[in-house]
Each structure stands twice: as structure tokens, then as C-alpha cells.
Computed example of a mutant assay.
Amino acid sequence: MALSAEDTQTAGAVWEKIYADVEDNGAVVLSRMFKEHHHTVSYFKNFTQLQSVAETASAEEIAALAEVRAHGKKVFLALNDMVPHLNNVDALKETIAPLAKKHATELKIDVKDFEIIFDNLLALIGEKQGADAKTAFKKVTDLIYEEIKAAY
């Protein structure tokens, strides 16, 4: 699945706006994942703050944790490395391959959990930029998810 030049341009503009607040937005995406899909907390056993409050804290409280903020930023940085390659599937695959391999073999993350992150990202884009931006960026998350699954 390739994106058109217009899709790529639109996606870049949407991403630029959401990435402008990388730390806060990354933390929000992850905190929602932890609250709505509690099994994902188990992937982060080394996040001691998260482990101690995950059951009782709100998504907002989880988003304020330093370890969640740092990892949310890391997730957004990885996506930021992918966005420039949306018009070049081979380059996109090269960018995704090491991430997919690490998550599949070393971290033992279920590939379906990437969908959770993407759904939360799209929800946040919709809240901050509207339905059109969300729809436009869904093409990006669909493409990236397909390439992650293929690399798993």
C-alpha cells in the first residue's frame, strides 16, 4: 500500500502539529493504552512507578510519570523517523525492521498492541486537529502497521 503525494503531504502536516508537543502527546497515547488495555502494563516491568500505580491512577496521573513521558517520547521519535519515508516503502521497511525485530523477539510484544498505540494516536489527533486530520493520518498508521506486521 503506497500513499499518494497528497496523502504524504497531508500526513506530514498532521504529524508536524502532533509532534510539536512530543513529550505530552506521547505520554497521553501511552497512558491511555495502559488504562484501557491493562495487559500492556506487564510489558513494562522495569517501570517501577507505573507498576505501583497502574491499578488505581487515572490516565492523566499515569501520563505525568517520568518513565511514561520518556517512553512516549521514544515512541514518537520512532514514528518521526518513519514519517519522512512514507513515499518510499523500501526506506520505510528499513526503518521499521529493527524496531519490529526488537519488539517481536527481545521484548515479546504482541504485534496487535501496536494497533492500540495507533488507535490512541488517531484519537488524540482527532481531538486536537479534527476528524479530517484523523482520517488522513489513519492511512499512515495503516501503512506502518502493515509493515510492522510484515517484519514481525
Rank of each mutant, 00 (worst) to 15 (best):
I148L: 13
A20K: 11
A133C: 06
Q49S: 14
D142F: 07
V111F: 03
M1W: 07
Q51R: 09
H85S: 11
V140K: 01
A27G: 15
G26K: 00
A91P: 06
L121G: 02
M82S: 13
Y145P: 05
E106T: 14
Q51H: 12
D113W: 03
G126M: 04
A64K: 14
E16V: 11
N88K: 05
V68R: 05
Q129H: 03
E94I: 11
K74P: 08
I18R: 00
E147K: 07
A66Y: 10
I144M: 07
E36F: 06
E94C: 10
L124K: 03
F76H: 03
E61K: 08
I96E: 02
S52E: 06
H85L: 07
E146H: 12
V140R: 03
V75Q: 12
L79Q: 06
K149E: 15
I117D: 01
R69V: 10
N88T: 05
I117T: 04
F114D: 00
R69N: 11
H38K: 13
F34P: 01
K35L: 07
E115G: 15
T8V: 15
E23T: 15
E94P: 04
D142T: 13
T8S: 14
I117S: 00
I148K: 03
K112G: 14
K101T: 14
K134Y: 03
K35Y: 06
D110C: 06
V14F: 02
K102D: 13
H38F: 11
S58D: 05
T141L: 02
A13P: 07
A64W: 06
F34T: 01
V83Y: 04
P98G: 09
K74D: 13
D90K: 12
N120H: 10
E147C: 08
E67S: 13
T141M: 02
Q129V: 00
K138Y: 09
D113S: 10
E146G: 15
V83K: 04
R69C: 06
E61C: 01
K74W: 12
D90H: 07
N25F: 03
L107M: 14
V14I: 02
V22D: 10
Y145Q: 07
E67C: 11
